[in-house]
């Protein structure tokens, strides 16, 4: 290896490490503050590593605040959204790929058109409608608007179109109804697509702030991002330790899941980029 090449590698390594440190800094800072004793947080000298670990911040966040409630809401809302999305999207995608009917092309056109509409655009009318039927401030308000997922249908359609029709014909001969074919054959086979979609959907809705901010005012219904803002706005600034512990707790599930299944996560979230 030539010296110039070694130098080049060293330089790029140094720059990449520097960049990675910059990327990590907010995470490190969050973790560091979350275990710092209060007096160290408010000392004017810069200290990245706390002198002693203050686990009390976590205890406080978990017992004296609504953080567990926010996490639970996050689970309910993301699981609810995902459940209904799949319940609606998979049969539709199956019909689009393995059945023929009048208006199939039109329906696919509709789905492509729906892909063009960002959620923010529909917020005002959906809010009006929900206010009208009185379901604002409920789990339904947080779940329902995301049930029709053009992106999900699109993704499942792409995947199911690659599965040979013979398999579904065999199931028909075996006596499965079309509904049974969807759930017993098509859905298990579409697991890779479902996983990618689930990762995308859960990440998007766990992290979403826009709609929870609009649809709910009740702190008991706050999803994690909404909740942490409640927390921050209630504390007058002297509870930084527990606040950062809460931020850590809220970020942790997805970050841990990402670290455990990096390839799937990267794929799922990159696929999500197709969505407008």
């Amino acid at each position: 290896m030539t010296a110039s090449r070694a130098l080049g590698r060293l330089a790029s390594l140094a720059l990449l490490l520097l960049g990675a440190f910059a990327i990590l800094l907010p995470f490190i800072w969050m973790l560091s503050l979350s275990v710092k004793p209060q007096d160290e947080i408010f000392s004017a000298t810069f200290q990245l590593i706390p002198s002693r670990l203050e686990w009390q911040n976590y205890v406080k966040a978990l017992t004296e605040t609504d953080v567990p409630r926010y996490l639970l809401n996050g689970v309910i809302v993301t699981a609810g959204i995902l459940f209904f999305q799949i319940l609606f999207a998979v049969p539709c995608a199956f019909a689009l790929t393995h059945r023929t009917f009048k208006g199939r092309t039109a329906l696919f056109g509709l789905i492509l058109a729906a892909l063009l509409v960002p959620f923010h655009v529909t917020a005002i009318p959906v809010f009006l409608g929900f206010a009208q039927i009185g379901i604002l401030n409920s789990y339904w308000a947080l779940i329902l608007p995301f049930v029709p997922t053009a992106f999900g249908i699109f993704l499942f359609r792409q995947f199911l179109s690659q599965i040979p029709a013979d398999l579904f014909d065999a199931a028909r001969v075996d006596g499965l109804s079309e509904t049974a074919i969807v759930w017993r054959i098509a859905f298990p086979l579409a697991m890779p697509a479902a996983t990618a979609f689930a990762i995308f959907s859960v990440t998007a809705h766990w992290n979403d702030l826009f709609w929870p901010l609009i649809a709910t005012t009740d702190p008991d219904l706050a999803t994690p991002p909404r909740g942490i803002l409640f927390f921050r706005d209630e504390e007058s600034g002297d509870d930084v330790g527990p606040l950062m512990a809460a931020a850590t707790l809220i970020t942790a599930p997805l970050v841990i899941a990402f670290l455990l299944a990096q390839r799937k996560f990267t794929q799922g979230l990159a696929t999500g980029g197709l969505k407008g």
């Binding site: 990327i23 907010p26 969050m30 942490i228 921050r232 950062m244 931020a247 970050v255 990402f258 996560f265």
Partner: peptide, 15 residues
Amino acid sequence: YFLPVAATLVAMSVS
């Protein structure tokens, strides 16, 4: 480098 994409942006904003 990918970590911020998966992380909850609101919580990270607080940080």
